[in-house]
């Protein structure tokens, strides 16, 4: 029972209080760059979950055999292996997604969420907890990404995942799908979550 509690705690922390995008504000490149449509957000989220899960499992399994002097090259090597596998598989099976995510799939290698989890969690904890950590962080990242891209796509193009939701009369604010829109939306979302957090603290 205690084990199950620990497992779910590691799982939930990535979604809530340690959410990489909204709370820790790390790995901000994809949330800013590819959050122009919900499908992009979902695709990127799944790719990151896969890489994070894979690298966490392998690093946690091999943590006793990784000398601390050369741990970073080994972490990066393992992460980039998973990223390349993801890149090839997306190109083979989801070509449309591959086209719209483009360079940002290979760039997952340098996404600091993944290296941060390897360094601060997977290399110090057993496999099962690392799985929970990887899934939780991945889902937290994906949810934030989907939220940002949902706001940007609906305001910027009047659609949600490609379907028109705001009707013909809605005049899309193109700035939302351009680079400045990403900063507006990310900033506003972080502000809202900070406000909610503070309100909760005032009450208690």
């Amino acid at each position: 029972m205690a084990f199950f509690e620990e497992f779910s705690r590691e799982l939930i922390k990535g979604i809530g209080k340690e959410n990489p995008t909204i709370r820790l504000v790390i790995g901000m490149c994809p949330p800013l760059a590819i959050s122009t449509s919900v499908l992009n957000g979902i695709g990127m989220g799944l790719a990151v979950i896969f890489v994070l899960l894979g690298s966490n499992i392998i690093i946690s399994l091999l943590r006793r055999y990784i000398p601390s002097k050369i741990r970073l090259p080994i972490f990066i090597g393992i992460i980039s292996t998973f990223v390349t596998i993801t890149d090839l598989c997306i190109e083979a099976y989801f070509p449309i997604l591959h086209k719209s995510l483009g360079i940002f799939i290979p760039l997952i290698v340098v996404n600091c969420i993944i290296l941060a989890r390897a360094e601060s969690f997977a290399s110090k904890n057993p496999v099962v907890l690392s799985i929970a950590d990887g899934i939780g962080m991945g889902i937290g990242f994906s949810l934030a990404l989907i939220l940002i891209s949902a706001v940007r796509e609906s305001l910027g193009q009047g659609t949600f995942a490609g379907y028109s939701i705001l009707g013909e009369k809605f005049d899309p604010a193109l700035v939302m799908v351009m680079a400045p829109g990403a900063f507006f939306v990310v900033g506003a979302i972080i502000a809202i979550f900070n406000y909610m957090e503070m309100k909760k603290r005032w009450k208690s």
Binding site: I70, P73, I74, G77, I78
Partner: peptide
């Protein structure tokens, strides 16, 4: 250390 690195990257190359 060199040997360990080589083993890791050989594994990744095969995959």
């Amino acid at each position: 250390l060199l040997a360990i690195l080589l083993v890791f990257f050989a594994g990744s190359a095969i995959t």
